[in-house]
């Protein structure tokens, strides 16, 4: 056990966690932010064009600005990996790879991660043709045959980007058409001669030695490619809700409009919650509300304490 007990511990440092940190800082709560890495998934966004005051800003820069703001309020972000969360005697114990922290209130803002296919070869060939970032890696597949897995906007935009370099791009999607993508994007991919659609297709495994050589689909069909870009959406961290017995819906933490979870003293904000819109601006809004809720609860508990003390003093005078 190290150090003091924090009023508030925030797990995660994306826009939700950082905004909660900013509000908590201004409420003068003794606050700790714990995060595997600073910034969250927004850091990887090439451009953010819908955050008020910016027509366009790199996700990386937006995140940096928030981190700076948190820093100026004197709140520390500890880059540690949370291993175990539990409630103990009215406090929360947060065991990380470095030590154990204690707090009175908890905000979970751990966001989401890119979903993995979960097939043989995916892990083994990561960095050897398997990629989750088309912007990063498209340029390495010049004149190669490449597959993009998925059918959302991000899959289609990835395919368009990869097609600028690759010889041929197969979009492999398990449904029979692009239900979830914007028609405007579909129209553009339709016209791209390098792009070929493979609907009703699911990847069974990724094969290769030193690098990706082919995909084997579940129906047995083989597709020879030198690269695979996996764009099948995101999923939340399921471990933390499980440890705290938080109620979830499809893995996302269920919250009310005060960002309260079903467990007292635990709040959640941002992409990890069952909110309807997973954007920076909504994450920030939820982070702010979560911090206020925590602050209000702490205040009530402190007031209760003071009343008690008053009572005792009153008795003493008598």
């Amino acid at each position: 056990m190290e150090g003091s007990t924090y009023d508030l511990a925030i797990i995660g440092s994306g826009p939700a966690g950082l905004t909660a940190g900013i509000y908590a800082g201004r409420y003068l709560l003794n606050t700790l932010i714990i995060s595997r890495e600073s910034g969250g998934t927004i850091m990887e966004a090439h451009r953010v064009c819908n955050f008020p005051t910016y027509n366009e800003i790199r996700g990386f820069d937006l995140s940096r600005k928030m981190i700076e703001q948190v820093g100026e309020l004197g709140i520390h972000i500890k880059n540690e990996t949370v291993e175990k969360l539990k409630e103990n005697d009215g406090f929360f114990e947060i065991k990380t790879n470095v030590g154990t922290h204690r707090s009175k209130k908890l905000i979970i803002a751990t966001g989401r991660e890119k979903r993995k296919l979960g097939v043989a070869g995916e892990k083994e060939l990561l960095g050897k043709g398997v990629s989750y970032c088309a912007t990063c890696d498209a340029a390495f597949f010049k004149d190669k045959n490449v597959a993009v897995i998925g059918g959302s906007n991000s899959a289609l935009t990835a395919a368009l980007l990869v097609a600028e370099y690759a010889k041929k791009v197969y979009i492999i999607y398990r449904r029979e058409r692009f239900f979830r993508a914007d028609p405007a994007w579909v129209r553009i991919t339709d016209k791209n001669e390098k792009i070929e659609y493979m609907f009703n297709s699911e990847v069974g495994s990724i094969k290769g030695g030193n690098s990706v050589e082919k995909l084997v689909l579940k129906d047995g069909l083989e597709v020879e490619v030198g690269g695979v870009f996996i764009e099948i959406g995101y999923e939340p961290n399921r471990e933390i809700p499980k440890q705290l017995d938080l109620k979830t819906d499809k893995g996302y933490i269920v919250v009310d409009n005060m960002q309260k979870t079903n467990v007292g003293g635990v709040f959640a904000a941002g992409d990890v919650t069952n909110n309807p819109l997973k954007q920076v601006i909504t994450a920030c809004g939820q982070g702010a509300v979560a911090a206020m809720s925590a602050y209000e609860e702490l205040n009530k508990e402190n007031d209760g304490l003071k009343d008690n003390e008053k009572g005792i003093q009153g008795l003493a005078i008598q």
Binding site: E37, G39, M43, E44, A45, H46, R58, G59, F60, C133, T135, C136, D137, A139
Partner: peptide, 14 residues
């Protein structure tokens, strides 16, 4: 690394 790669920009300072 490369300028166009956001995860690279995250990793660099670390």
């Amino acid at each position: 690394w490369a300028q166009w790669c956001m995860p690279c920009m995250m990793l660099g300072p670390t």
